[in-house]
Design a binder for these strands. Sequence first.
DNA 1: CATGAATGAGAATTCATTCAT
DNA 2: AATGAATGAATTCTCATTCAT
Lengths: 204, 204, 204, 204
Amino acid sequence: MARVGPKAKTDARRRLLQAAAGHFARHGYEAANVNAIALEAGFAKGTIYNYFPSKRELFAEVLSEACRRAVERYATLEHGTSTRESLEALVRADVAVVREEEAFMKVLVREAMSFRSETYALILERHAPFLAVICEILERGMERGEIRPKDPPARLAVTFLGLLSLLYVQHWGSAGVWPALDEIPELVVGMFLDGAGAEKGRRS
Amino acid sequence: MARVGPKAKTDARRRLLQAAAGHFARHGYEAANVNAIALEAGFAKGTIYNYFPSKRELFAEVLSEACRRAVERYATLEHGTSTRESLEALVRADVAVVREEEAFMKVLVREAMSFRSETYALILERHAPFLAVICEILERGMERGEIRPKDPPARLAVTFLGLLSLLYVQHWGSAGVWPALDEIPELVVGMFLDGAGAEKGRRS
Amino acid sequence: MARVGPKAKTDARRRLLQAAAGHFARHGYEAANVNAIALEAGFAKGTIYNYFPSKRELFAEVLSEACRRAVERYATLEHGTSTRESLEALVRADVAVVREEEAFMKVLVREAMSFRSETYALILERHAPFLAVICEILERGMERGEIRPKDPPARLAVTFLGLLSLLYVQHWGSAGVWPALDEIPELVVGMFLDGAGAEKGRRS
Amino acid sequence: MARVGPKAKTDARRRLLQAAAGHFARHGYEAANVNAIALEAGFAKGTIYNYFPSKRELFAEVLSEACRRAVERYATLEHGTSTRESLEALVRADVAVVREEEAFMKVLVREAMSFRSETYALILERHAPFLAVICEILERGMERGEIRPKDPPARLAVTFLGLLSLLYVQHWGSAGVWPALDEIPELVVGMFLDGAGAEKGRRS
DNA sequence: CATGAATGAGAATTCATTCAT
DNA sequence: AATGAATGAATTCTCATTCAT
């Protein structure tokens, strides 16, 4: 067919990206099969190459799209009154994204956890807006005396993001048993702010 | 039975496993090349099939071996006087293992972080002895009032292990920049026990 | 009939043929890309199939057109007074064609030199007018005693054409270094008439 | 199978090269099919990659082998008493090679005639020994006054080789009709030394 | 046991061609 | 007529696995 208009073309691209995200989430990059992705998207195998020049490029697009989707939510985020509330609101928003775009988010987390320097750097870079939001919250928290000023906020933000990813990993790895998605906001923020130690045991 | 005693056979197997660990750590499972592993171990291509029936089986053996190596150290571990000291001693021991068996540990962590239910469960199961040690420390910490009794110790132990893995991921993903292996024990225990918050009245 | 007159249609066809000639000259038949040809001609991918039913047919048309262009010049050719002058005039005209229609001529020569019986015969047949001109010159040369009557003129003409093609091949193969196009007329005629030998008694 | 000894391995390589030569001679480089070559050599398709890392490399090997075979004959060549006899002896030897190794020689000539600068240079380089033999004959001919000293011997040698190739092209292009292989030595040397002009017509 | 040549299923990618618009 | 999205056959190349020696 031809002359389907930019709408249809964009739509086809979306379908392909969606299928690719699901497939990459299930199999990982190396084990993924480009033909299968095209088929799963309802196209013949060659068609996908009208949209993405190679498997690697397709994967990069999925990753970018995942980052884009994850990040664009945080623009509209309301800040809570305390650090704890702000962080929980942020994580609730993230969990909502994960619920809706599970495939994309799985790819993202899996790749972030694969510690290949190249993709690790890429993902950090693409996450910059998200990290910036976290940073801002933490900085305000430090000003208010709610966050210990021991570590630089940027590093704390990376740790917070890692902790969040870790809980997703445990969620998916346990097939949803523990933690449930709903528990994650409180869990991750509690863990991050309070740790597991009792107050009196704290290192002075 | 054969011209080589069981000692030689065991030795060949060990060399193959070691080479396989290094190779899997560098390339991941899918991109790994069985022939290359055999060659790197100093054998010809076919020989590896005298010891492992398939690539998947070889990988499983590497994983098991990694678990075994990771775990066997903790049997002899001295317990510190406080929860913090005990945990730090444990992590220092783990870091020592990671330093010596980096290839095996990379495979292990990567696989643990890939949230495929099967391997995730397998790894948890194989880590049972390690988790038991952590559990014990935490339980004693609870008795002493050093650990908040909010969460069950088993779950806390899994989280602790996850946190530790997360720091390894960040270490390898940043190509060793941050955190350095030496920093990890204090970092992970600090994070786990104290969190990042500076709540009122906590700090004495 | 249609919105474009036959003139426009012919023009489109010409553009396509020209682009195809250039592309085939650069890449050869097998490595040529029909889509790229259409694009280079300023059309979209599918359009070329409104003019040529297949890649092979397109190539055949380019070949025919090349023959046509190569041959049509010689109709108006002035004959020199001697065999040597006549042949040199002919080759100068041919070199002029090659200069102007380099793409078509490259395709033609490459195909002629690929010794596939079918195309070889086809090209000879299409070159009949050209060969006829050469033949006529040679026959007159024989009458005048300027050409040895040992070989039949038709065969000599084919050899002459081959020699000319050979020099083009060397020209293009050496990236224009040797021989230069300008040198070719004297070179080919000198080679053809005189050879490289300096037999006794010949040189006056 | 394994452990077939270097003999079998060399033999397999030879079979593959032979099949490749035939295939490339029939189809040319681009249209050639590596699977088909392996099959024609009596192997499964993957096997050929145990011997040659890529299609291009296989082709280069065929070309090298063709050059090698063509050249090694001339080492043992007897020189005739005159330039004409020496050249005819050389060409007779070359024709003998062509007869025995037709596939390799076709590839060689086809490629030499495709005026791609890269292969053109390669072939000239590989033909250096052959060209050296021709050069030597021509230089002695010049000393004896049998060759006009107008052009440098190296350039004459290239032309001679081109002329010879041209006749092969006409032989194969005409499906063996004209010239026959047997006629080529006398034809090419006659053409090269004497040209087609009558003596009295010679440019003084 | 060790070897390494042979195998063939499978994957990525290309591109001539079709055809609905 | 022009367009360009879709198609799927075909091709190159990889590599886990087998097995004769």
